[in-house]
Structures are given as C-alpha cells and as structure tokens.
Design a protein around this nucleic acid. Sequence first.
DNA 1: TGAAAGATTGGTAAAATACTAAACAATCGG
DNA 2: CCGATTGTTTAGTATTTTACCAATCTTTCA
Lengths: 145, 145
Amino acid sequence: MRLSAKIEYAAIAVLELAQHWNSDEPVRIRTICAAHGVPAGFLVQILLQLKGAGVVTSTRGAAGGYQLARSPAEITLDDVFRAIEGPDELITAITAARAAQSRSVSVLLDAWKEVAANETDSLRAVTFADLVERSRVTSNPMYYI
Amino acid sequence: MRLSAKIEYAAIAVLELAQHWNSDEPVRIRTICAAHGVPAGFLVQILLQLKGAGVVTSTRGAAGGYQLARSPAEITLDDVFRAIEGPDELITAITAARAAQSRSVSVLLDAWKEVAANETDSLRAVTFADLVERSRVTSNPMYYI
DNA sequence: TGAAAGATTGGTAAAATACTAAACAATCGG
DNA sequence: CCGATTGTTTAGTATTTTACCAATCTTTCA
C-alpha cells in the first residue's frame, strides 16, 4: 500500500468538500490550500482529475469553486483512488506476461489479484460521509458552520 | 495496489525456490533467470534484499545458490512485500503530518491505516506453500522433480 | 589453483513524481 | 460592459524512483 502525495491531497480535498456539502456555495481552491497547506498549483491538477472522474463539479467565475458531484455517502476512498490512479488492472504486468508460460506464475497472478480485490473492497467500505461523521462525534473544539 | 517490477520478480523468485524446497541443492540465479526471464543483474539485488530480510539464505562458491530460509508454509506474500518495500509505516506521510492540525485529517489518517492493515492481512493469508500446492493440484503437463 | 558461484559497488537511462508558471476562459458585481 | 475573480489548459522542470548493467571482489569446491 503505497500512497502518492497526489492521492493523499485528493482525499484531503474531497474530505474538505464533504464537510461543505450542506452549503450551496462552492469551495475555492485557495480555501483548501489555506486549510491544509496543499500546494495550490498541484491541487488544480488534482481537482481537474477528480472532476474528470465525476467525483466533483466546478463553478467558474467569481464566487466559483468546487463541490462534490454527489452525496458524501456515495463517495468512497476507492473513488478517489481510481480517479487519481486509474483502473486497478495491468498492475501485475510482469507476472501476467509470464503466467501463460508457467503454471506456478499463473497461480501467483491469481493470488495478487485476490489481494488487489480485497484492497478495493476495503477502500469501498469507507465513504466520506463516514469520515465526516467520525470527525464530528469525536470531541472536537473546532466547528464548521 | 501498485506492484513494482521488483516485487513481482521477488515473488516469482521465492516461488521458484519454494518449489525446490525439498531439494538440498541451492538454486542458482541463472536457473531462475532462465526459467522466468528475470533480468540477471536485477535479480542479484533482489535476492540480496530478500537475504537481508531473512527470507532466503545463500551459499557461496561453486555449486552455490539460494534457498529459502524457512519452510514455504512460513513465508507469505507479505514477507516478500516487506522485504522489498520496507515497513508499512510512513506511507501516509502527508496526511500524518497534517493530522495533528486537523481533526478531520486525523480521521482520514485512521482510515488509510485501516486499509493498509487490511492489505497486510490479505498478504499474510497467502503462503508460498499454498501457491506450490495450488500449482500442483491444477492440471499441469509440466513437472518439477 | 582455477573455475564457478554469490557479494558489493557504482553507475545510468528512462520514467514517474511533485510540483511551478503562464496564458486563457468564464462568470458576476457594479 | 468592465474588470476582478475564479476555474481551465498547456507547458515545462527539478527531483526522485525505477529498473536495470557492468565490473570487481570474495568465497567455495574440485
């Protein structure tokens, strides 16, 4: 389980948007950067990718910004992961290429696939509504509206 | 779940050694390369790393080579993973650094850790004895002594 | 002693990562 | 309609990681 900075920032950004889900006003990139110290230029790319994957929507112009494309309950860590990393496939490229030649390597390939499937399951198990809820129930001196 | 070529080769090599577990003779690098098309120079490094992690042992000199350090039943995919990638920690470096400042990010950190723990569990669930066994029970026209 | 194996060191080309910068386009308040 | 404010797009780049190769050294056994 290796997380790139890009994915970590993406999750932080989506979580921030999830906390503003009740508000109608879109959240500006600048706001997210200020809140979590994410490099602004980098976040631009990340949000564009999330938008391309249908996770967030954007509003242009003054008073513009980003919002979640759907309810936080319908967005999982897996959605963010796939938006940034692309599909789960072709990751075991070397093993897959040799599986046809060797019975034992093909068994190994199946094992890797099983592990990957498990990972997807546990990423799907976590919604951003969960995360928002968890951060509320624990004692927290800070409020958002 | 991203697998580097290094990890894939490592797993293939360990599996090859697992299949020779009954034999007393160590397996040469050249043999593994010939069997699975692993780049020889690269495999040298990989086996050294596996040796450093205590997964394999080596015998120098003529008729030397590599062997598993313990029974295939006691070696899991997780062992290979950790040997190559290092410990599971500090992978969520960015999120971890910001967790102290923000309640919500700290909740996110916990979620990432949970996913990582699940991955470790499923990697630990697969032993190389399992893999050898699976490759035997399925119909296979090729034999290894 | 000399061939055959691993051990160690040092490199390196290519790709990925983690950004930065700048010009562009859309929106809205006045 | 103007201009400030926001997102959009494209291009570039420094750094790091990846995936190796090569050469030299050390150990072992016949």
